[in-house]
Write a protein that binds this DNA or RNA. Structure first.
Lengths: 136, 136
DNA sequence: CGGTATCCCGGCCGATACTG
DNA sequence: CAGTATCGGCCGGGATACCG
């Protein structure tokens, strides 16, 4: 397959004004991707999600969920019980996004050792003073 | 395939301290993804890249390229000519990332109309005052 | 051409307190 | 439990100027 072949769509992410850039940032931002990933495993309540996405604050989780719900990727199901119970789950669109996002995440996780090695090489090269090759 | 099945790796992105989160942000951040996408189409020079990635500033492109180079995703080839010529291209690892990133980007682009419609519905619902259904 | 250095603002984000 | 309100720090990122 040729991934450079771009279908003739009305939206082009390379264009400055393309609204897809905004959604892409919701989806791939610091918390958006982790939230979608967690929900891909199944419906979760607010605090379950908060525990699953290690490090997220109440505020950011709430904000992230609102953005994803607005984009039609997450469905919010509130039950008017006491205490209140709210479940979050992916929509069909959200599953589509998650199915394409997770392979990327897993690929990076799986190659993290190589990435860390590349970083060490890069940093060592800079520290030792330049762009010369192995021979110095 | 079951994307929830996570191989037993030393790195887990859901964990607060996982370094993959950093690389993921380089890759999916505001400019990282567009830069990888542009380079997936072929090797490019600095200003070619700058024109292709509409809206990026010199500073952010430089910063983005450094981060991607450090992570071993992009290779920088400088020729000591005058005027200077520098080419950027994806490494094998970078192509692996791009191949998983592009389907996500294309999916969002392709479903942008639906996403925008979801936003309008969401905003209209909020403006009209509540979580009631179609019957008001 | 291919960058780096500096200034500065907006908003991301965490911490804390409060509400239904 | 499931959030909202408010404050403040930090830094992403744009504008501009400058360098080899």
């Amino acid at each position: 397959m040729d991934l450079t072949e771009r279908p003739d769509l009305p939206f082009d992410v390379f264009s400055k004004a393309c609204p897809s850039r905004g959604t892409l940032e919701h989806v791939t931002g610091r918390w958006g991707g982790l939230t979608l990933g967690a929900l891909y495993e199944g419906s979760l309540r607010f605090n379950e999600l908060r525990r699953r996405v290690d490090g997220v604050s109440e505020k950011m989780l709430s904000q992230t969920l609102h953005a994803l719900e607005r984009d039609g990727l997450v469905h919010r199901e509130a039950q008017p019980t006491n205490p209140p119970r709210v479940d979050y789950e992916l929509t069909a669109l959200g599953r589509g996004v998650a199915e394409r996002l997770l392979p990327l995440v897993h690929f990076v996780e799986g190659n993290m050792a190589e990435i860390l090695a590349a970083r060490e090489r890069y940093d060592a090269m800079r520290a030792s003073g330049g762009a010369r090759g192995a021979l110095g």
